[in-house]
Design a protein around this nucleic acid. Sequence first.
DNA 1: CTGAAAGCGCTTACAG
DNA 2: CTGAAAGCGCTTACAG
Lengths: 344, 344
Amino acid sequence: MKGVSIKDIAKQAGVSPTTVSFVLNGKAKEKRISDQVSKKILKLATKLKYKPNQLARGLRTGKTKTIGLIVEDIANHFFANVAKIVEEEADKFGYKVLYGSTEDNLQKAKGLLEVLEYRQVDGYIITPTVNLDKDIEALKHARKPMVLLDRYLPHIPTNYVMVNNFQGAYDAAEYLMQLGYEKIAVVTITSEQIQMKERLDGFLAAMKAHRSGFPRKMLKKLAFTATREENIEEIKTFIKSIPNLDAIFFTTNYLGIYGIEAVKDLGLQIGEDIAFISFDDHDLFRLYSPGITCVSQPIGDIARSVIQVLMNELNNNTNQINQVVLPATLVKRGSCSKKAASKI
Amino acid sequence: MKGVSIKDIAKQAGVSPTTVSFVLNGKAKEKRISDQVSKKILKLATKLKYKPNQLARGLRTGKTKTIGLIVEDIANHFFANVAKIVEEEADKFGYKVLYGSTEDNLQKAKGLLEVLEYRQVDGYIITPTVNLDKDIEALKHARKPMVLLDRYLPHIPTNYVMVNNFQGAYDAAEYLMQLGYEKIAVVTITSEQIQMKERLDGFLAAMKAHRSGFPRKMLKKLAFTATREENIEEIKTFIKSIPNLDAIFFTTNYLGIYGIEAVKDLGLQIGEDIAFISFDDHDLFRLYSPGITCVSQPIGDIARSVIQVLMNELNNNTNQINQVVLPATLVKRGSCSKKAASKI
DNA sequence: CTGAAAGCGCTTACAG
DNA sequence: CTGAAAGCGCTTACAG
């Protein structure tokens, strides 16, 4: 049950715990421990399978070698994949990760932050909810290593890693126009989340760049809190309300999934009766018939950047702020099949 | 930066740290601390926002209030959802969770186990890989609270929570026969994973119960390590090799997804040309046209049971073994559309 | 009814 | 080149 401690090694080697600690922490040279002693200790440590007690070390150094990962929903395709790579990358640096989902709920986010602080994680990866500003500010003020993921807080300069939401949505809208679609609608959520706002802005900017304007009635906002069924009904009603609608853009994958269901319920054929693009990729989009064109996020790059920025912060504690914006890619599939007709 | 400690409270209250500790740990009555002192301490604690240092407490008590969750792949729909509920449930008991993915690789699993031991997690939730027996045995021998998830090791009696794989697959096969399908094939993986074996056994048992036998050539095993493209090619070749094939069963969701791609590539129509069932549900199965009939696992129940069993172990350390087998549900969708014809 | 003291396993400033 | 000692923040057996 009991593990071997530094003391055990010291006793067997006939030296003090101090010396053992120095050697085991690679400070043998620096502390000018003789090679002979050094080797003896190292040999003993492997022989006894010595594992430093992280708790004791942490108590002493204040470091837990643990990072906290707060996402919106760990079960969501995007975040689950990020979580996987984050764990793998963190492991390479000797860190483990504690996670939690906010469900985009401010209180849950605050609770998570509190627990992680309490647990003394060394660094934070956070997908902030709306109105989390004060808490992020506090973390920043306490000089805690931290990097925001997927979105940022406009009023607080911090490290962050995210995709270029504006560009991704702009490209999607422009693509639809290039193909010759005329009546293009957009579905987003009511929430003030910055990344959603930027996606909508990108979409609208493209529309305005190539068209005389964008009528408000072509825009639908859904409540994050509504049920699946409610959302699908809302989308159906929205689609029916627009005569001659020929293309529709959804600003995130779960909305896109609702959209597919709504379109299916209405008996419309994606790609034939209506063109369809969603932000974020998903197995479903790839495999649906026809495939759903989407704005894909580089998940691996995002996760690796997040860890890189965090490790940099953890090790150097510079004051430099790293803001990484990665390009989104338009993945073209059968859901927008009209042959390029009118030029935009 | 520095948090308030028990000493700070003691000083301000004019009592000893011992007394503070007793009160804060709810032992005021037991240790017969006066109500007056007790109240003063409690008030001070909330006023100073005292947060016990888990590291120090852990060093002293040997408990970290952390559990380790080892899954096959945290990015997989099933495990991502389990991870989410596990985290929520654990949180209710004051536990946080550290996770990692094995990729069904023995070395990774061993590595994960080692790190978690090193981190002194209080309990383990493990999706074992093949050949992990010795390590699980060691954990068991060390009397570490532990519960296996999704699969078990036949030679080692331990706690586990899983779905009834045999019954789920049996039901699927029987359903196909009831609908009147004649030539039914099955696709599984080469790995020795017990849950896969049981699914195949369930399928075969149903076939044997209602038919004269099951020809070996109707069974295809794919390598877990093969690439997406390779697997899809293999499935296509397999399907083409069986004349008059009219139904196919996949033993897990990612195989089912490959299967959909393969069938699509071959220009066959699911539900029309070939009936299709997969173990495990997935967004894709629900939304595909036609919907894919599947054997659904009760993910919420599984995750809650896992935590319940683990907490029971953690708190009571009984010797009693809990083995929970939950029923799988056949979710009928359009992918098996033949009208019930021949009776089986 | 309450407190002094030891100890969990480390690290590190200080001393020689 | 090496060690004694203090201290991180708790808990708990012991004493009064």
